[in-house]
């Protein structure tokens, strides 16, 4: 039984990794490629590490496999976030089929300021302060 579950985990993990690779090859622009790679590859690694934990079944190995899983779950979104943001602000083109982009109008490439679009008149008004240079 454990052998069977292990085999299913390993095979599906490898399939998800192949899916990620196919996605990175086929998808049209940077951000959609990141969708395919980060999540599918992270899921693949998680499945294979679960198989490793099942295979050995000792405390130290299971702890290490779980540590890898937690590590992947914590770092994959952070890495995707930094690369996606850098790519977007460096100016990689979006695919022609992109239907809307609510970020571009709120971003100022000169000052790197990113507005929320929720600033109202009241928020934007500036009161004179003591520390202002005269």
């Amino acid at each position: 039984m454990i052998e069977f579950i292990k085999g299913v985990f390993i095979l599906s993990g490898a399939l998800f990794m192949l899916l990620a690779a196919l996605g990175i090859l086929r998808l049209p622009d940077l951000l959609t490629r990141m969708h395919a790679t980060t999540k599918a590859a992270a899921l693949g690694v998680i499945l294979i590490m679960l198989a490793v934990a099942l295979h050995f079944g000792e405390v130290d190995v299971v702890a290490r496999a779980l540590a890898i899983i937690v590590f992947i779950l914590m770092t994959a979104p952070v890495a995707a976030h930094v690369i996606g943001r850098a790519g977007y602000f460096v100016g990689s083109k979006l695919w022609s089929g992109t239907v809307k982009d609510e970020l571009r109008p709120n971003y100022d490439p000169l000052t790197h300021e990113l507005k929320s679009g929720m600033e109202t008149e009241a928020n934007a008004r500036r009161e004179p302060k003591e520390s202002d240079p005269s």
Partner: peptide, 15 residues
């Protein structure tokens, strides 16, 4: 949000 496929968080506004 980044971990669920189909969505990827890009940035947080300054405020």
């Amino acid at each position: 949000i980044s971990l669920t496929p189909g969505t990827l968080s890009l940035d947080v506004s300054d405020d």
